[in-house]
Design a protein around this nucleic acid. Sequence first.
DNA 1: TGCTATAATGAAAGCGCTTTCAGAACCCTG
DNA 2: CAGGGTTCTGAAAGCGCTTTCATTATAGCA
Lengths: 343, 343
Amino acid sequence: MHGAVTKRATIADVARRAGVSIATVSRVVNGTSRVTEATASRVRAAIVELHYVPRAAARGLASRRTHTIGLLLPEISGHFFPPLLRGIEAGARENGYSLLIYSMQDRSGLFDPPYRPLGEHNTDGLLVFADSLEEAEMARLYRIGFPIVLLCRSAPNSLPIPSVTFENRTGARALVDHLIEVHGCRRIAFLSGPPGHEDSYWRQAGYQESLQAHGIPFDPALVAAGGFDDEEAAAAVENWLTAGIDMDAIFAGDDEAAMGAIAALQRAGRRVPEDVAVVGFDDIFISRYLSPPLTTVRAPIEQAGRIAVQQLVQWIQAGRVEHPLPLPTELVIRRSCGCGMVR
Amino acid sequence: MHGAVTKRATIADVARRAGVSIATVSRVVNGTSRVTEATASRVRAAIVELHYVPRAAARGLASRRTHTIGLLLPEISGHFFPPLLRGIEAGARENGYSLLIYSMQDRSGLFDPPYRPLGEHNTDGLLVFADSLEEAEMARLYRIGFPIVLLCRSAPNSLPIPSVTFENRTGARALVDHLIEVHGCRRIAFLSGPPGHEDSYWRQAGYQESLQAHGIPFDPALVAAGGFDDEEAAAAVENWLTAGIDMDAIFAGDDEAAMGAIAALQRAGRRVPEDVAVVGFDDIFISRYLSPPLTTVRAPIEQAGRIAVQQLVQWIQAGRVEHPLPLPTELVIRRSCGCGMVR
DNA sequence: TGCTATAATGAAAGCGCTTTCAGAACCCTG
DNA sequence: CAGGGTTCTGAAAGCGCTTTCATTATAGCA
């Protein structure tokens, strides 16, 4: 029932119709050199009449530029993702680039047959989110001069690849400082993210830094794996509780873990924040709707996406990049830390 | 500091190194016809040694296939989005296609200069989410035989374009039936989505159908715009309350609106569900964490993305499509409707 | 008016691949 | 061992564009 795509207009059709050469059509389409207004408008008319749309493949082949950037992701999920992608998409669009999405569900080689059309020949540059690309491959791409920008992950040692990150450490520090200084907490537990997760690493660093600054000894028993996941976090909290380990606050690593932690605490009959304060990280949409509303830290995610694209485009077009500073995070005080409670 | 990309290996380099013609290399890369094992392995070795990756542009130009599908979105946001994209991405990957993302933030023509490399020449097919593409353009693409599949939106009259949708109507019907039959609600308010939103339309249809089936007259005063948005919904509920309009249940159109509705109700001192039951639609991640946990309807979003890709690929490759049925939705009973409460 | 500088245009050579088409090499039969 | 199939491989023609280079039209100036 559905036939093949009808043969479409090419640059030659437009040229013929406008009575010019294809070179001239190319010039008016791309604005690469001056064309008399009279000629140009004839060409434009022909383009419209024929519904001409240049074929990206032909352009890319001839110019060795795809005007496409690739986005490599470890997985597509979470509340983090839409704003990030929105920022990236907007950045790409503003700069005239298309966006090719790759999620690396499997670790099977991006560059092994059967070839996936990403990589150094098929995009002009790559945005690498978190740990979606192995270091060896990153090094190889860097070596051959292929533009990459890292997102939410710092560059491996010795590779000066630009990377856009958040101030996880200082954000966590501010959060734990608040717990200690304002609410007098002394036994603060930490629910870490997935092993090897860089955000988690720095959040824990901020946590320990704050403890130390306030003369509170670090107790490894108060650190457990929360996996940045509500159920895993809930399980971890239940473990603590049944093991008789007690705390007056939980820093949950991220907001999803905080949700799980609050739920587990409440199921066990502990009041939040009266018995145990809980704080998260990220300020996802629902954090304000939890009961109690969650105290957390907000990161400019969408902005990060935009900035990363800008860096990448700059590298692609100008051949150079600055290395941006970590983006500032912001403390968001709500009630789960104990603030604003009726006494 | 960063130089241009080093010159990379082409098919000719591989051919030379393996001592064969480029045609043979092409055959082993694509498996388009038999090649002696001895030859093939020489070619494979050369490919590995040279880090050869075929250039998508050249392939696309020669074969008139981009192996890329485009995804058109009105906006990137919400809890709906990650699972949808995950499904689409997985579907694309499984079928050997790349995914080009387009969000239509502005309505400025996709096909006007300066050209954006989407459209009939630059992807093999288009996935159109909700109302991201105007009907006229859809009609034109259909006329020239360009593959399109609609997602969460039905085809305009007279265009037999395949579309993947959910059973919004029956889902809503089941939800409202539950409210009426199990909880004896009689004054059920409805918070509609954005104007013209198809999901909202069908949910409202299911709502009215249930009312009618139970002999409850439809009261237009009990319908207000919730915008599928927490704040807009909260405002609408406040309006009802200050206007003295009363209800024993609210069907909130979607879960985000339900969150806003619950918050507004609670601020006004109404208990949920004792005074007013609230139900949503979508079963987003946090619905179970609200207090009370939200009764809602779940749709197989990720699956929808996958199916849509499959349809599209089938059209692209086989030139034909079936028109899939709406995907079934599932009632998720929690506590906000009044179930499971201590009496 | 004639000559040169300049602007506008066209011809043509690729870009790196796929895909016919045809030839070469091989394998069976009888 | 001749004849007729199969296989396997290579030559070469594009795919639709960009871009260089040469050419022609236009203008500027003495």
